[in-house]
């Protein structure tokens, strides 16, 4: 038992030492984005939502998550992309975002979930700053996974509303 523990522990420690983190990735407008899997609370399907009056358009409203009121953002609208109709693949990823003083549970609507990757943090490249897209501020870094490029989200900035 102790050895089993220490085996797992040592694997985690090794990964931590190498700065390897697991990221949940999802699709949005054919691009793949990733968030630290430890921040993810759950993945839900899209459901009826209560609108908040006079809120920005990307704030779709609030849902009841087992007794807690949780705001839901549409990530497409947040990024200034065109809205699409929600389909069967549309999911809400509920994340816990840590701000300076507190942490909040919030949800983001994305086109579809993709995969979980182990990514070493030092592999992440900073976003080239010649893009004048305002969305670059929401991206903490870019990594290559095989042939694909994944943009790692800066949740704190994305969810700071």
């Amino acid at each position: 038992m102790i050895s089993a523990h220490s085996e797992v522990d040592s694997k985690i420690m090794l990964e931590q030492a190498q700065g390897v983190k697991q990221f949940l990735t999802f699709f949005m407008a054919d691009e793949e984005y990733g968030v630290d899997i430890l921040t993810v609370q759950e993945i839900r399907s899209w459901e009826e939502i209560t609108e908040i009056p006079n809120a920005p358009d990307y704030l779709k409203g609030v849902i009841n998550l087992r007794g807690t009121i949780v705001p839901i953002l549409d990530l497409r609208l947040r990024f200034g992309l065109s809205a699409i109709d929600y389909g069967p693949l549309t999911v809400v990823i509920v994340v816990k975002v840590y701000f300076e003083q507190n942490s909040k549970i919030m949800g983001v609507v994305v086109d579809a979930v993709s995969d979980v990757y182990s990514i070493a943090e030092h592999d992440a490249k900073t976003v080239p700053n010649f893009t004048d897209s305002e969305n670059s501020e929401f991206v903490a870094g870019l990594v290559n996974v095989g042939e694909k490029m994944v943009a790692l989200l800066d949740l704190k900035k994305t969810m700071d509303i």
Binding site: T50, N54, V62, T68, I69, I105
Partner: peptide, 19 residues
């Protein structure tokens, strides 16, 4: 989890689970 909303003092959960 969100912020103060003008004109709204809070939320509640109705019998059918809606907010």
């Amino acid at each position: 989890n969100y912020q103060k909303v003008d004109g709204v003092s809070g939320a509640t959960i109705l019998g059918d689970g809606r907010v």
